[in-house]
Computed example of a mutant assay.
Amino acid sequence: MPYYMFQWKYKNEAVKALVQTPQDRAAELRKVVQAFGGRLHEFFFAFGDYDGVSIVEFPNNERCAACATTLTGAGANDLFRTTVLLTGDEAKAALAMANATNPDYAPPTGYTHHS
């Protein structure tokens, strides 16, 4: 099954609610991910640009998108990002395919490579 990374930033009101009433947000995310046939691998709160990061797995993009839409539709986040992840083997296979296919792609006209 494909892997994905969810990253989110809570709205200020949601952070205030979490401070006033600490909650197991991993359990809530796990419940929603499982409802769409997925699996929650990791859940982290974070400092920096995002308040949280999780690694999830779904049977396909449609199920992941449905889950992400449900999460964003709940309205607690200022920002929610989904990133498709590749395993090392998947990346190696993609690189080999790119090498074997060699479609003779040309960069944009006028592009100059700067080292």
Rank of each mutant, 00 (worst) to 15 (best):
residue 35 A to C: 11
residue 42 E to F: 00
residue 115 S to K: 04
residue 18 L to N: 01
residue 66 A to M: 13
residue 87 T to N: 08
residue 58 F to T: 07
residue 27 A to H: 03
residue 6 F to L: 11
residue 58 F to S: 00
residue 99 N to G: 08
residue 2 P to W: 02
residue 83 T to F: 03
residue 89 D to S: 12
residue 10 Y to P: 06
residue 59 P to G: 10
residue 64 C to Y: 05
residue 46 A to N: 05
residue 43 F to S: 09
residue 87 T to S: 15
residue 76 A to T: 11
residue 62 E to V: 15
residue 39 R to Q: 15
residue 45 F to E: 00
residue 12 N to F: 08
residue 71 L to C: 12
residue 10 Y to W: 07
residue 110 G to K: 15
residue 79 L to M: 12
residue 25 R to C: 02
residue 42 E to R: 02
residue 86 L to A: 06
residue 21 T to V: 06
residue 17 A to V: 03
residue 20 Q to F: 01
residue 110 G to Y: 12
residue 39 R to S: 10
residue 59 P to I: 10
residue 101 T to R: 01
residue 62 E to R: 15
residue 8 W to L: 08
residue 49 D to I: 06
residue 4 Y to R: 06
residue 57 E to S: 04
residue 15 V to D: 03
residue 77 N to K: 02
residue 92 K to Q: 12
residue 12 N to E: 11
residue 81 R to V: 08
residue 25 R to S: 00
residue 90 E to H: 12
residue 61 N to V: 13
residue 96 A to N: 14
residue 106 A to H: 14
residue 21 T to L: 05
residue 18 L to M: 09
residue 39 R to L: 13
residue 57 E to L: 09
residue 43 F to G: 04
residue 59 P to M: 10
residue 71 L to H: 00
residue 43 F to I: 07
residue 78 D to M: 13
residue 104 D to C: 14
residue 79 L to A: 13
residue 39 R to N: 13
residue 13 E to I: 02
residue 14 A to W: 07
residue 35 A to T: 01
residue 1 M to C: 14
residue 47 F to H: 11
residue 82 T to E: 08
residue 21 T to D: 08
residue 80 F to C: 05
residue 90 E to R: 13
residue 68 A to M: 12
residue 59 P to S: 13
residue 11 K to A: 08
residue 85 L to R: 04
residue 113 H to N: 09
residue 61 N to K: 11
residue 67 C to L: 05
residue 9 K to R: 13
residue 102 N to D: 13
residue 45 F to D: 03
residue 72 T to A: 14
residue 34 Q to E: 15
residue 90 E to L: 12
residue 6 F to C: 06
residue 90 E to M: 15
residue 115 S to P: 06
residue 83 T to Q: 06
residue 44 F to D: 05
residue 13 E to G: 04
residue 71 L to M: 15
residue 67 C to W: 02
residue 45 F to K: 01
residue 12 N to C: 03
residue 21 T to F: 03
residue 36 F to D: 09
residue 22 P to D: 07
residue 49 D to Y: 08
residue 34 Q to C: 14
residue 70 T to C: 06
residue 68 A to D: 04
